[in-house]
Structures are given as structure tokens and as C-alpha cells.
Amino acid sequence: MRRSPATAAIALACGLALAACSQVDVPERLSGPVSSTTTTAAPAPPPPDCGDPVASLRPTGAATANVPAGSYMAEIKERGRLRVGVDVSTLLFSSVDPFTGEFEGFDIDIAREVAGALFGDPSRVELVAIPYSERLNVLIDGTVDLVSDTFTINCRRREQIAFSSQYFSSGQRLLVKSDSTATTVEELGPDARVCAARGSTSIDNLNALPEPHPEAVPVDTQTDCLVLLQQGLVDAISTDDTILAGMAAQDPNLSIVGPAFSAEPYGLGLPKDQTEWVRYVNAVLEQVRSSGRWSALYERWLADVLGPDPGPPQAVYSD
């Protein structure tokens, strides 16, 4: 069949019209990103009763490098190093020197004392940085042998792990900007926002204050609180005065104010049901207290910011 030019033109036009039917998929206009929001902490359930929470197992003798075969300590010695969970950002207690890359602080040295007793060499320690919220989990799953991380002893935690005897006494206080007139949580007022690390006792203590109390703002690490305070996103930080001292040392425009409104006894976190190991660590702490080593460590790390040596807390034993 012959086709005239007009027919060809019509065919071309129809072809174009058909082509118009085969369109590229064009999505609707897209929505923007969703901003993240800060969550507030849920109120903590009432703590269980475990008697005297700071009471630990009595040492059975001096802590030496000769450990019973088949014991948890022997297991550690066989491995060749003590695994310790620590924080990277609590200045004076446990932080990394950015220039040397080495961990340093009071808690680090306490951990080294344990390694020194076990191996005769305080450097036989593997320091594992952990967030505050993971301190229980790393002991439960066996990632570390010990947590040395401004760890407050309390009954709720003792349901899941064991603690050494108390090796430091702290108390929860407030860190505010130096121009703030507030010296207590009450003076901050109910509209204030107070930051504390998620999973810490500080959050529980803030939520346990009589109503109306300031809003507790939980964050993953203590130093996140310092960032929020420096940026004016919270009005204060409330946690142990030991930790606040490390923060104040990083910013001269901040001050620790008011009396402690809680007692925070620090212990070394240990795996539950490892009684030999708990007694061994308590023996090490006894040596640290009695030898004057504790006071030496306090002088080295804390005396400048927390005042004169108060002496080590007395150990309390349950048996």
C-alpha cells in the first residue's frame, strides 16, 4: 500500500501523541526531614530492699598473684589481662588523654591496683570504653571482669551484678553557669531543665524529688550534658560531685553549687555469683586503703578540685 506524505505526517503526529503517553514517573513533592526531639525520662520504679546496699563480701586473705586453680582469678590470669569497663570522658576519674591516647584518672588507677595484685604488673589491664548506660550489660554478658566507672552501689543494680566494698563517697550536686543565682534544685524552679546521664542514679534521684521538680533531661554520656549546658539548652547538670568537678575543670564559667542531696557510694562493678572474685577485689581495696595508696591517688587526681583528703570510706561487709 502506498502512503502519501500527508499520511506519513499524520502517522508521525500520532506517534508523538503515543510517545506522550509513555511518561517518566514523577513523584509528588517530597516531604522534609523529621527533626529529632529530646526525650524525657520516665519515672523510676521504687527501689528493691536489699538491706545495706554497700555491704559486700569479706576478703578471706591478702590479694596475691597466687590464685586458686579453677577460680575466676585463674581464668583472668590465663587470659593474660584484666578486662575493665571504664568511661572515656569523666575527667579526673576516667578519661583519655587526647595527646597520648592513654586512659587516666582515679578509677583507672584503682583498676590498675587490681591488675597489679593479680599479675604483679599494673599494666596488664585492657581498658574497654563503655557508655554509662551499658555498665550493667557488659558485666552480665561477660565482656569485662570489672567496671571501674564512678559506679554507685544500690539495691536495684545488685539484683543484676555484684559490687565490691565502697571505695569512694560522692554525692549528687548541681553544676550551673557561674552567673546563675540558683544554689539548689528547688531554686532552679519547676520550669528548669536539668541534665543527667541516662541509666545513672542521678536521673532517678531527680525524678524522685518532690513535685514540682525540674524536668530531667537524659543523655547518653555525661559530657553530652556539658555540651547542652554550654549551649544553654539545659539550666543545670545534676550528678555526682566527682563528675561535676571534672566538668568544671573543663569550663571556668561553670560552678558546682549547693549541698549534696544524695549519697553516692562508689563500688567496683563485678559479675554476679563470682564470690571468690568479689572477695579478692575487696582484699585489693583493703590493701589500697591501708597502705596509703588511696590517699596518694586522691592527692594526685582530686585534692585540687574536691579539697583535702577525707580518707577512704570504711568497708562494710555482710559476712
Binding site: 526531614p33 527533626s35 529529632s36 572515656v88 570522658s89 569523666t90 575527667l91 578519661s95 583519655v96 588523654d97 587526647p98 595527646f99 554520656t221 559530657t223 553530652d224 556539658l226 555540651v227 554550654q230 571534672g246 566538668m247 573543663q250 569550663d251
Partner: peptide
Amino acid sequence: RQGYPVGSAYLSQARELARTE
């Protein structure tokens, strides 16, 4: 540079801003 641990928290904040916003 001053040896302050808060430096890492600022870096985390920057990264969070980049990632989520």
C-alpha cells in the same frame, strides 16, 4: 587540644546534626 573530653561530645553533636538533619 586542651585535653578536655567534652571535645568528643561536640563532635558527636556535629555528626548527629549531619546524620539526622
